[in-house]
Design a protein around this nucleic acid. Structure first.
Lengths: 231, 231
DNA sequence: ACAAAAGTGTTAAGTATACACCCATGA
DNA sequence: TCATGGGTGTATACTTAACACTTTTGT
C-alpha cells in the first residue's frame, strides 16, 4: 500500500548531506574530517557525509551522519547551503546539502570516530578535500562568524565550565584575529548570561582563572531573540 | 555511452526549486505567485517553482523557472534554504531548494506571466499558499532584510533612475517600518554610490524630486566587500 | 624574586537617533 | 495663496576601540 506519487515525469536525484563538524580543543578550532572509504576518490580526505534516505528529512540525515561518526545526539546544527552543480561529484550527479555542527570534542566517541577513519584537524592543517568540500568549509567558516556575532553558540563548543580566557581564545580562533582582553570581558559579561563560579582553573596559569557556567535560561531567551555582539 | 554511476544503492529524490520573486511597484513590495496548475492542490496559490532536471544545476533550474514565468534573464538571485521534510509536499516526497529573486516589475513579460497564471500581490495581500510556501516566504523576508543591511541590492528592484523618496519607500517596505527622512538620505549618500542627475521626477509632487542613478563601478566594489548599513 | 597569565577603567572617536522648519511648484 | 511633498542640520546618547598597570602564585 505505497503512497501514490504525482509528478511522475520529473527526474530524481541523489541527495547527500555533508557536515562541517567543528570542535575546540587545546585552544584550537578543529574540524572532523575522514578518509573516504568509497570510490571514486577512496582514500582521499572528505567531510563527513551520507545520502538522504527515503524515510528521513535532510535535517535527520545530517543528525544521523553525525551520530554515526561521533556517537553524539541533540547537537547544535544549522543548515548552510545546497550545492547543486551537475558535475560537482565525479561519481555521479549528487546534490549536496551542507550543515555545520558544533560539538564538544571531549564528549564524542573516539573509538567510533576512529572506526570511520575520522580525524580532528585544526583549521590550518586541513588538506585538500574531495570535490567542492574545501569551498564548503570556507563558506561554513564565514557563516559561523556571522552566526556567533548574534547568537552565543560559542558555548556549544566549550565544556560546561570554562574560563573567560578560554572563551576569548575560542572567539579569536573563529574570527582568526586577536580580541582585546578587556573589551571582550566587558561585552561578554554585559550580556548577563554567565554565572561566575567560585572554582578556579589553574591548568594554564599560576594565578588561576575563574570558571564560569552559562545560564541556560537567559541563554535560551537570547537565542530566540538574537543579540548584538560585535567584535 | 552514459556515465557510470557509483553510489548504486542510494535512494533518489525529486528535487524542486521554489522562487520567492520580489518586485516593487506603486510604492509596495510585491510578490509573484501563481495559481497552481498541477495536482495535488491544483488551483491553489503557490510560489513559482519547478523540478530540477538532470542536465541543470539547482541555480540554473531557478533561473529557468524565473525566465519561464517572467521572460527575464540575468536576474539577481540568492539561494535561501532547503526544505527536506519527508511529507512537506502532499503529492510525493520532494526536497525543495528556495531562491529569492529581485526584479523590476516594469521590465517583465506580463503576457508570459499571465499565461502561467502569475499575479503580483503586495505582501499584505498574500493568501494562504500550498504546503510550506508561507513559511518559505516568511524566511525569505527575514533573509532579504539581512541582505539589504549589508548589500545595496535594493537597486535591483528600482528602475534605472529613481528618487530618494522612492528608495526610502522601498526600504520602508522591506523593513516594514518608517525610516527617518534625513537620516536615510545622509546614510545613503554617504555610501557614495549614487549619481545625482539634473532631471527631476514630478509624478509624485509639485516640487519634484531629483532623480539618481547608481554608480555601477562603486556599487560592484561594495557588493564584493559588503558594507555596513543600519536602519 | 621572578615569570606568566589573570584581572581591571578610562578616554576618545565614531555612529545612531531624534527632531522642525523652509523650499519649490502646480492648481 | 495654499497645499503637497522635497529637501536640509544639529545636538545627544550610545557604542566601539584603544590602551597599561597591578594581582596572584608556583617555581
Amino acid at each position: 500500500m505505497s503512497m501514490h506519487s504525482f509528478y511522475e515525469n520529473a527526474p530524481k536525484h541523489l541527495v547527500a548531506v555533508d557536515c562541517i563538524i567543528f570542535g575546540f580543543e587545546d585552544g584550537k578550532l578543529k574540524l572532523l574530517i575522514i578518509k573516504r572509504k568509497v570510490d571514486p576518490m577512496a582514500g582521499a580526505w572528505s567531510l563527513v557525509g551520507g545520502f538522504v534516505q527515503d524515510e528521513e528529512s535532510t535535517d535527520e540525515a545530517a543528525a544521523r551522519v553525525l551520530k554515526q561518526t561521533t556517537g553524539m545526539e541533540n547537537i547544535y546544527m544549522d543548515q548552510l547551503h545546497t550545492y547543486g552543480e551537475v558535475n560537482r561529484d565525479t561519481g555521479s550527479r549528487v546534490i549536496a546539502v551542507t550543515y555545520y555542527a558544533l560539538i564538544r570534542i571531549k564528549e564524542h566517541d573516539r573509538l567510533l570516530a576512529n572506526e570511520h577513519g575520522a580525524h580532528w584537524l585544526s583549521l590550518h592543517q586541513i588538506p585538500e578535500l574531495i570535490f567542492d568540500h574545501n569551498l564548503m568549509l570556507q563558506e561554513a567558516m564565514k557563516r559561523l562568524r556571522e552566526k556567533v556575532r548574534f547568537h552565543p553558540v560559542g558555548f556549544e563548543l566549550l565544556p560546561e565550565k570554562f574560563t573567560l580566557p578560554q572563551l576569548r581564545n575560542l572567539y579569536e580562533e573563529i574570527y582568526q584575529r586577536e580580541l582585546d582582553k578587556r573589551n571582550f570581558r566587558k561585552k561578554i559579561l554585559a550580556m548577563n548570561i554567565l554565572e561566575k563560579l567560585e572554582e578556579k582553573d589553574k591548568t594554564s596559569s599560576k594565578k588561576g582563572a575563574h570558571l564560569y557556567r552559562f545560564d541556560k535560561q537567559k541563554y535560551e531567551l537570547l537565542m530566540e531573540t538574537g543579540f548584538g555582539f560585535t567584535m
